[in-house]
Simulated assay, not measured.
Amino acid sequence: MTRPERPLTGRKPRTIGYRQIASTLVSEIQGGKWTLDSPFPTEMELVERFQVGRNTVREALRELQDLGYIKRRRGARSVLVNASPESAFVNAVRSAEELLDYAKITKATILTTETVIVDDKLSRRLDIPAGSEWVRLGLLRHREGQAAPFAYSEVYVLPRFADVIESFGAEGELFSLIERRHGIVISRVEQEIEATLVDANIASRLSVPVDSPSLFVRSKFYSSEGDLVEIGLVSFPASRYKVRLALDRRGAAAAAA
């Protein structure tokens, strides 16, 4: 005897973020759904389509404007002004949380997985004491529709958290998987950003010349207990990645009042 299916009525719909909406619209723009200088859907049309709030749609449209696809006009429809504005991946950031969000809207390809003991050389690279054991993933990041990777990453997690690696990508980033599976809260992320030159290993991964300029980012993820849980090292070739910041000043509105 088969059990009848439960009706879907009353089930809470899955909420999507503005970056997912922006990514969908970018794919449609690149696929030719709209022509240059043609009117873009209104905020309310997008609210109805994606079943989200108006603020979420506004953030998605702001993202498209930051990336150079549309021009927004007060009191009128946005207009498509460029179907392929950037050859580089642009990470438009308006908050600390969004600094790592590029991982959610790009594709990661794992190249290597291995267990390493931190020696003196790696100790300096990771900025941690030598002697500890970590599981290291080497991976490439691709922007949708672009053949060349825009980043090479090495991600280090403690061996007791290595069980999350098999679900990496399909179910989320490593630090978020560690939170869900191990009941850990990542409460602090420290980042250091440095302009540097790529070595032979990274150059071969990214297909760029040795000693070409890049942006090197080291991220450390700490639990609410202060324990170091994950370390990420990312190299962005100069020609393939940009960070665009638009941050609001706290208290600016109150000071102006």
Rank of each mutant, 00 (worst) to 15 (best):
V93G: 04
I110Y: 00
S176N: 06
P85L: 05
S212W: 03
T113I: 15
D211T: 09
P41T: 04
R19C: 07
R94Y: 10
L245Y: 15
R136M: 14
Q146G: 01
R181N: 13
V189C: 07
T35Q: 15
L206G: 00
E97A: 14
I29F: 01
V164F: 04
K71G: 11
R160L: 10
Q146C: 07
E190H: 12
A147F: 02
A200I: 10
E28H: 13
I184P: 02
A96F: 14
L111H: 03
S239Q: 05
S212Y: 03
A254V: 14
G10V: 11
A238K: 05
R62C: 07
E179D: 11
Y69I: 01
E194D: 12
V26S: 00
M44F: 11
T15N: 11
L233A: 04
G232T: 05
S78I: 06
F161P: 02
L126N: 03
R124C: 11
V210L: 03
L197A: 13
V234I: 14
I128T: 13
Y152T: 01
G17N: 11
R94V: 12
S235A: 14
S219Q: 12
E144I: 05
E133N: 11
D163A: 15
A246N: 15
G169S: 05
V210I: 13
S153N: 09
K33C: 08
I110L: 08
Q191K: 14
S84H: 13
E179Y: 04
G68V: 08
G172Q: 02
V52H: 01
R14E: 15
S235E: 02
L233K: 04
E225Y: 14
G226V: 10
E166T: 13
P13S: 10
L61Q: 01
V234C: 05
T2R: 13
S223Q: 09
L140G: 03
V210W: 06
I70L: 09
I21C: 01
S214E: 06
L140N: 01
A200N: 10
L137S: 02
V157N: 01
P209R: 06
K220Y: 09
A257G: 15
S123G: 07
Y222I: 08
N82W: 05
A257Y: 09
L126G: 03
P41R: 04
Y241I: 02
P237G: 07
R94K: 15
E48D: 13
V26C: 03
A130W: 09
E190C: 11
S207K: 04
F150H: 02
A108P: 02
R62T: 08
T106F: 03
L174E: 00
P213F: 07
